[in-house]
Computed example of a mutant assay.
Amino acid sequence: MNLQQLRYVVATAEHRTMTDAARSLYIAQPALSRAIRDLERELGMTLFARSGRGVVVTAQGRRVVKLAREALDAVHEIEALASHSPAGTGELRVASPPSLEPALAARLLPAYAAEHPGARVQVVRCDGRDGVVNAVREQRADLGLTDLPVPADLVSHPLERQEIVLISPPGLDLPGSVAMSRLSGMRVVLPPPGSARRRELEMLFATHGVRPVVAAEIDERGGWPATVRSAMASLLGYRTMADQALRAGLVVRSLDPPLRRIIALVHTRRRLPATAQEFLTVAEGASAV
Rank of each mutant, 00 (worst) to 15 (best):
R125N: 11
G61F: 00
A49W: 00
A82H: 09
A248G: 09
T17H: 00
D256I: 09
P151A: 05
I27S: 07
A276M: 04
Q60G: 15
F205P: 00
Q4V: 13
A59P: 01
A28W: 06
P30K: 05
S24H: 08
V252K: 04
R23I: 14
Q29D: 14
A248H: 06
A22P: 04
S195V: 05
R69E: 15
G144P: 02
L154E: 04
A35I: 04
A231M: 08
S51E: 14
N2M: 03
L143M: 04
S24Q: 09
G176D: 15
G237N: 12
S96P: 04
S195T: 15
L265S: 00
D73F: 13
V178N: 05
E163V: 09
A264I: 01
R199S: 14
S181T: 15
V124D: 03
R93C: 00
V266H: 02
R120W: 12
V155K: 07
S24G: 15
A11F: 06
P97C: 10
S168R: 06
I36K: 01
A226Q: 11
Q139P: 05
A59K: 00
P110S: 09
A283H: 03
L246C: 10
I262C: 13
H116A: 09
V214W: 08
F205R: 07
M1T: 12
A226K: 11
R34F: 07
V10R: 01
E202C: 05
L67W: 15
A68F: 05
A68V: 08
D127N: 12
A106N: 13
G88Y: 02
S177F: 07
T268C: 08
A21E: 03
E101K: 11
R107F: 15
S99E: 14
R7H: 15
S184C: 07
R62Y: 00
D243P: 10
V188C: 02
I27A: 09
A106C: 11
K66L: 14
N2L: 07
L255S: 03
E115S: 11
D127T: 09
R50C: 01
E42P: 02
G185E: 05
R137E: 07
G144E: 06
A288M: 14
E79L: 06
P170R: 03
R261N: 13
T227E: 11
Y112F: 15
A276N: 02
G128H: 07
T227M: 09
R211N: 12
A233E: 00
P193D: 12
L25Y: 01
Q162W: 11
Q5I: 03
V123C: 10
V150W: 01
E160D: 14
A288T: 13
R69P: 08
L3R: 14
V56D: 07
L236M: 10
G222T: 13
M45P: 00
A35D: 05
T275K: 10
A105W: 11
A245Q: 04
G285C: 05
D256N: 14
D153M: 07
P212L: 00
R137P: 02
A286D: 14
M241L: 15
G144D: 04
D73G: 13
E278W: 02
A21I: 09
A114R: 12
L43N: 00
P212W: 06
P151E: 03
P193I: 03
M45E: 00
N2Q: 10
L32F: 10
V65R: 00
V10G: 04
S254L: 11
F279D: 01
A276L: 07
L143I: 02
T281W: 05
P151L: 04
I164L: 15
S33R: 13
